[in-house]
């Protein structure tokens, strides 16, 4: 009996190893190893070829250079801008969209939902190219609006002006990802107890009071997920920015990841680029940790 059980255990172990090996190998080689290699490379002044030794060891020099670079500061600030603007404009708007079409059986709500959500599945690069057309200075929407309302023939080139380019890109990000947050909120709305809402209405609460005191508190979970995904996503913005100007004009729309590409990969500065990657990773990790600890933790 014992030997039979032992045989069973061995068989289980073999089976386990066979089943897990393909995923484990692929994951270790292509995900885990590069992350650790990156952390190592970031300490060297290295072009991606030749040995890593004492001669090109740079310590934390890459990091100090990084934080002294003005374009890196621009990139960091742009990422912060995405986070702040999303929290102030995008998520509340997504919440309003959800309230509009996510409750009851409003006519057409299924169609509306898929139309609002569609930009989210659209390829980022294609979204960027479409908006480049919309912003076109010669015939684009802005120029047309200006000639319609202000009666000028002036060309409006939002993407060519460093002071407006990034805000113009944010509009695209707003449009692209709002549907996703809306769907999260719609899912959250299903969990709001209707009795509680009815009770509040009977007690004479107006719509705003119901939203503030009944709906939002019962959606805390979904709202905290949405904020979390919005912030971590913002650190990794690349495709849309790339399609609309590759970080230009004059590096004004650089984000952390376009900076990594332009100043790391393009110049074959693998040590310096890896330092950028490590900073992105640590920012995400720090946010993750603080958010879990202070925001999500509070709720439980």
């Amino acid at each position: 009996m014992i030997s039979k059980r032992k045989a069973g255990a061995t068989q289980n172990l073999i089976m386990f190893v066979l089943f897990i090996a393909p995923a484990l190998i692929l994951f270790s080689v292509f995900v885990v190893a590069p992350v650790f290699q990156g952390a190592f490379y970031s300490l060297f002044n290295w072009k991606g070829a030749g040995p890593l030794n004492r001669e090109n060891f740079a310590g934390i020099e890459n990091f100090t250079r990084l934080f002294a670079d003005k374009y890196f500061k621009t990139a960091l600030w742009n990422n912060m801008k995405v986070i702040i603007f999303s929290l102030i404009f995008q998520l509340p708007a997504a919440f309003i969209f959800a309230l509009l079409i996510g409750r009851g059986k409003t006519r057409g709500s299924v169609l509306f939902r898929s139309l609002y959500f569609f930009p989210y599945i659209l390829t980022e690069i294609i979204a960027g190219v479409i908006w480049k057309f919309i912003y076109n200075p010669q015939f684009g929407l802005m120029t047309q609006l200006a000639s319609f309302f202000a009666d000028t023939k002036r060309e409006i080139a939002l993407l060519a002006d460093p002071s407006t380019a990034f805000n113009a890109i944010f509009v695209v990000l707003f449009w692209k990802y709002i549907g996703f947050h809306m769907i999260l909120y719609i899912a959250g709305l299903q969990n709001v107890p209707t009795e509680l809402e009815d009770a509040a209405v009977i007690d004479g609460a107006n719509r705003l009071q119901v939203i503030r005191n009944v709906i939002i508190p019962s959606m805390k979970g979904v709202i905290s997920i949405s904020i979390f995904l919005s912030v971590t996503g913002a650190f990794n913005v690349f495709d849309v920015v790339w399609a609309m100007g590759q970080g230009g004009p004059v590096h004004s729309t650089e984000t952390l990841v376009t900076y990594l590409y332009n100043f790391g990969y393009k110049r074959f500065a693998f040590g310096y680029g890896s330092a950028v990657a490590i900073v992105i990773f640590l920012l995400c990790l720090a946010f993750n940790f603080l958010y879990q600890k202070y925001i999500v933790g509070e709720e439980n």
Partner: peptide, 14 residues
Amino acid sequence: LFPLTVAILPLFLQ
């Protein structure tokens, strides 16, 4: 926790 962007340079070398 590891987005592709973070690992992209070492991945290229790999």
